[in-house]
């Protein structure tokens, strides 16, 4: 359903914004020739027919040809997709792991100096635009210290249709700065969320009871409290992966990371409608997939949901 709506929006982008023929041919093309091109492209067909064809093509992964680069959009996207997904995956991991650890720490040791420091930094993190963080990192680690590369993916290994930078040393080095940059903003959210959850859960009766039973603090914190606090974290983290994909546009531009965001920005600048609409469909697809995965994860983390759906089935 969502996919259909998005498909319609991106189709209307395609159809109503600008004249595709105008974008393809030069100034000196005659009107007759233009009309011929229109006819071969099927632009004179009724709108519903065009829409059906668009959906049909899109489901086969065919989004037409880029105006600017004159190559099939699907080819461009499969070329760029691995870079973006690797970047988003690594930064989601960083944000989730570091965010949860710091959140648990600040939730348990509320009065300590380190907690105050972490929270202050996280407020600053919200005010720092992603690209400013990126520039600061580049200046610090690439220009002054010269330890990490500031652009590109490093060496990549091809695994069939997938190119990965995670298996070479230069590729791993190259992903550090962009992924940390991208994860910082999400991390601050997760820290605050986990902290609030932990503080609330540690007040609960079953925690007091566990303490009374003499279970050590470590087990209580990580086994009893954190597990219950994780549900909202997973929801938010799931939603935020979509945000990460969107924010990777900025990070990719700063670090010249050859991913889809970089492609999209170029497309916006040159009004390359096929790429824009394909990107839109891609983002919608990511959102739908994430919602699906998050729902499945609930099932594994929260036994209550399992029991409920089991009862409904039985």
């Amino acid at each position: 359903m969502v996919m259909l709506v998005v498909a319609f929006v991106s189709f209307s982008l395609f159809t109503f914004v600008g004249d595709p023929v105008h974008n393809m041919v030069g100034e000196e093309t005659s009107d007759v020739e233009r009309e011929e091109i229109r006819e071969t492209l099927g632009l004179n067909d009724p709108i519903p027919v065009q829409f059906m064809r668009f959906v049909g093509n899109a489901s086969k992964g065919n989004f037409g040809i880029s105006y600017q680069l004159r190559r099939p959009v699907s080819e461009l996207i499969t070329e760029r997709l691995p870079a973006t997904l690797e970047l988003v995956f690594v930064s989601a991991l960083i944000a989730l792991i570091t965010g949860t650890l710091l959140g648990v720490y600040t939730g348990i040791n509320r009065k300590s100096f380190l907690s105050d420091l972490i929270l202050a930094i996280s407020l600053l993190g919200v005010s720092l635009p992603t690209f400013v963080i990126g520039i600061l990192f580049i200046y610090l680690f690439a220009v002054i210290l010269g330890v990490l590369p500031s652009f590109g993916r490093g060496e990549v290994i091809e695994l069939g249709f997938w190119t990965t930078g995670l298996l070479t040393i230069s590729g791993l080095k190259a992903i550090i700065l962009p992924s940390v940059t991208l994860s910082l903003f999400q991390m601050t959210y997760i820290i605050r969320l986990v902290r609030a959850e932990m503080m609330e859960i540690l007040q609960m009766d079953y925690i007091k009871f566990a303490r009374a039973r003499g279970i050590n603090e470590r087990t209580i914190h990580y086994k009893h409290a954190l597990k219950n606090g994780l549900i909202p974290v997973i929801t938010i983290a799931g939603i935020n992966i979509g945000t990460l994909v969107a924010f990777s546009i900025i990070t990719e531009t700063v670090f010249q990371w050859p991913g889809m965001g970089f492609l999209f920005i170029q497309a916006v600048k040159f009004v390359d409608i096929p790429i824009m609409s394909a990107y839109l469909v891609f983002i919608a697809f990511v959102f739908v997939m994430i919602n699906f995965i998050v729902d499945i994860l609930y099932y594994f983390i929260d036994p209550r949901i399992r029991v409920k759906s089991g009862a409904a089935n039985g």
Binding site: L13, V17, G18, G242, T243, A246, F247, I249, I250, F264, I265, A267, V268, K269, V271, I273, M276, L280, I283
Partner: peptide, 16 residues
């Protein structure tokens, strides 16, 4: 995400 929304609007406006 709002940044994506803004980018899209900007891209469409460029087309129009």
């Amino acid at each position: 995400p709002s940044i994506l929304m803004a980018l899209l609007v900007d891209g469409i406006a460029r087309g129009l």
